[in-house]
């Protein structure tokens, strides 16, 4: 106790105060306000009263929880696809390519992120829309008779989400794979292992902390993504963040929107917790 107290020195306070202020003023305080808001409704007389109706609406109205389920399923699917695309990429960068070149390749991976997500999504739209670049070339090549609308469907939306979140999976994977001793892979190969058994028995168990941390980030980002589902998936994509947006902006029902926001937070945290339990990882190890 004494030891802990003696560590709180003036320099410590100087450095920790901005962080605490940041956390409290910009994150904790608004959330408390939103939380309080989510438990209040307007009664018939127009006065604000306490109620659980905002939360019950989520379960009573199928469109809400179905949207959430759909969002969650697609977020999990996106996370899995992102992982299966990122693992070979990370493996190639860390183990196959010469070390001189691997830094350059990591930089190439980062490059798209110098541009805002909005611009990147519009880039995809220019490529994929009915009058877009890809349709143009397919028509020229005679592969298509008339242009096809490639936007506004779930496949394109998932592809866009994978593209947006890939970096957040590749970076933790690169860092765990760098710590994997090459001779372990060679030893497994020497003992009769093939690609499948080396990946499943050696690489994935070793990379598990990176996979889980990348998975959490990708899952949370995808679940909370608004731009990509809305622009590529179209107005009918029914992403849960759009429901929240609609409550706040379209219906101007801030109380309902706040309740949905908290439901998103609680349900996604619960899913991450289940994911950690299933893969037998501890959060403290994963965030390292």
């Amino acid at each position: 106790m004494n030891a802990a107290r003696s560590r709180i020195t003036l320099p410590f306070l100087i450095f920790v105060t901005p962080v605490l202020m940041w956390l409290f003023l910009l994150i904790v305080l608004p959330h408390i306000d939103l939380l309080l808001m989510s438990f209040r409704i307007e009664d018939d007389a127009g006065a604000m009263v306490w109620s659980l109706v905002n939360y019950l609406n989520f379960f009573d109205e199928p469109v809400y929880w179905r949207t959430f389920t759909r969002t969650a399923v697609y977020a999990i699917l996106t996370t899995m696809i992102t992982f299966s695309v990122s693992l070979p990429v990370a493996f190639y960068i860390t183990k196959v390519v010469s070390p001189r070149f691997s830094g350059f390749l990591s930089l190439l991976l980062l490059m798209p992120f110098w541009v805002s997500e909005l611009v990147r999504v519009y880039g995809w739209m220019i490529l994929l829309r009915e009058s877009g670049v890809i349709n143009h070339f397919l028509l020229r090549a005679g592969l298509l008779q008339r242009p096809v609308e490639m936007l506004y469907n779930d496949i394109t939306m998932v592809m866009g989400l994978v593209y947006t979140s890939m970096l957040f999976m590749v970076v933790p994977l690169i860092s765990v794979l760098e710590s994997l001793d090459d001779s372990l892979i060679e030893a497994a190969y020497d003992l009769g292992g093939n690609v499948f058994s080396i990946v499943t028995r050696i690489i994935i168990p070793h990379a598990m902390p990176g996979i889980v941390s990348g998975g959490i980030v990708v899952f949370m980002l995808t679940l909370g993504n608004y731009l990509t589902p809305n622009l590529i998936g179209g107005k009918n994509s029914l992403w849960f963040t759009e429901q929240i947006y609609n409550q706040f902006i379209a219906s101007f029902n801030w109380n309902q929107g706040a309740a949905f926001g908290f439901l998103l937070l609680i349900l996604s945290s619960a899913m991450v917790w289940i994911g950690l339990k299933l893969t037998r990882q501890k959060l403290s190890q994963v965030v390292q």
Binding site: D181, E186, A187, L191, R201, H206
Partner: peptide, 21 residues
């Protein structure tokens, strides 16, 4: 013939035991 199909085995300098097993 790749290493996994040769009737020889190699003991590595740092042994390369699998720490996950």
């Amino acid at each position: 013939l790749p290493p996994n199909r040769r009737p020889v085995n190699l003991i590595f300098q740092h042994l390369a035991l699998f720490p996950m097993m």
